[in-house]
Design a protein around this nucleic acid. Structure first.
Lengths: 209, 209
DNA sequence: GTCTATAAATCGATAGAC
DNA sequence: GTCTATCGATTTATAGAC
């Protein structure tokens, strides 16, 4: 579709990448409402007015960061799908994939590179719903996870008494679970141990088996 | 300690109750950062300047609402403790109490009367840590739940491979779990069913038993 | 104590020079 | 396209009349 990008286009691309990366970090630390455009400009190393030449509003900035985050999640999910062996369509493989995705999301959160989307309220939610790039990727990711969920449920590897959407919502919520940050803030545990614990409690619960 | 309250003091008490109740509702719906003092004044039926005669800052307003929320939680917990029969010190009774508390908190959230505390970031967190009334109640509640947790763990009714603080944090997090709101927003399920599901997944997990 | 009016600070967004 | 400087709106907090 596009011809070879000119130098100018490449430079612009790199510049916008720096901006989105800055937004990503700030969203992870402060959230949308407490993130200021001045901070984004400072972190990206340019003046605020220059930033507004690339993105027309703060909401668009956040949207671009969320799109990038979803792209990374889709990349991970597609990689998992591709690495499935001949037994990859079993319910057991499906639930292992779901656990991998949950663990991956928690690791991203511990790295500080997972932008926390405000689950409800916040002026951001409305603008995201009219962001086609965001909605498309969210639907895509939900469908891919939904396939694994229903396969795991019919195979008896996931509770069938729960609606599939409850499982899906739970996975999204655990990706931003504040418990992860609280345990890290205590400073007593290694990141990998925290991820293992929360993954384990998500699928196995707090009660003994 | 205090003599019988004068009419004036009673009126002031009622007035402040109306303010705190308004803050409680607004915190539940919008969160701290998006809640404006103008809204609080409007909802409480008074001018903003009058409100500032009772509370000296927005942070103090939020602190009062959180103190009230913790008081209600402590009241529920103490009620549970009092209703325990002669077998009340068993590990099984302890885990049942923990489930009751989790379910109670979710019901409060569904009612829109549970102020959502920003788990991390937010300028509110810092001021709450220097709010003695808040900290005292939080420690009190944590200790009471901690007693049940350790009793349930030693009795084999709660996984002993998890740190007690992980269990405690998880209970606090589930009280504000966004999954509850997402399921309610779908409009397909009754509140009681949502509460049962999330309580069940918290203790039993997503995997079949 | 309650009100109206306004100060003081912050923040998203833009104008205009280069 | 990048910058400095500023507008305009919002919001916390207060002054001062009653």
């Amino acid at each position: 579709m596009s011809a070879r990008p000119s130098y100018r286009e490449q430079i612009q691309r790199v510049r916008e990448d720096a901006i989105v990366e800055a937004v990503n970090r700030l969203l992870a630390v402060k959230g949308y409402d407490l993130m200021t455009v001045d901070e984004v400009a400072a972190e990206a190393g340019m003046a605020k007015a220059s930033l507004y030449k690339h993105f027309t509003s703060k909401e668009e900035l956040a949207g671009a960061a969320m799109v990038r985050a979803l792209d990374r999640a889709l990349e991970f999910v597609n990689g998992l799908e591709g690495s499935l062996g001949p037994a990859g369509r079993s319910g057991d493989a499906a639930v292992q994939c779901l656990k991998s995705v949950a663990a991956w999301a928690m690791q991203r959160q511990l790295e500080g590179s997972m932008p926390s989307l405000p689950s409800q309220n916040s002026s951001l939610s409305e603008s995201l719903k009219s962001n086609d790039g965001y909605v498309d990727r969210l639907v895509d990711l939900s469908n891919k996870l939904g396939t694994w969920i229903s396969r795991a449920q019919t195979g008896g590897h996931l509770r069938a008494d729960l609606p599939a959407e409850l499982v899906l919502y739970t996975l999204f919520a655990r990706a931003c679970d504040p418990v992860v940050g609280m345990l890290k803030a205590s400073g007593q545990y290694e990141d990998s141990r925290i991820v293992d614990w929360i993954t384990s409690t998500t699928f196995d619960g707090l009660s003994p088996r």
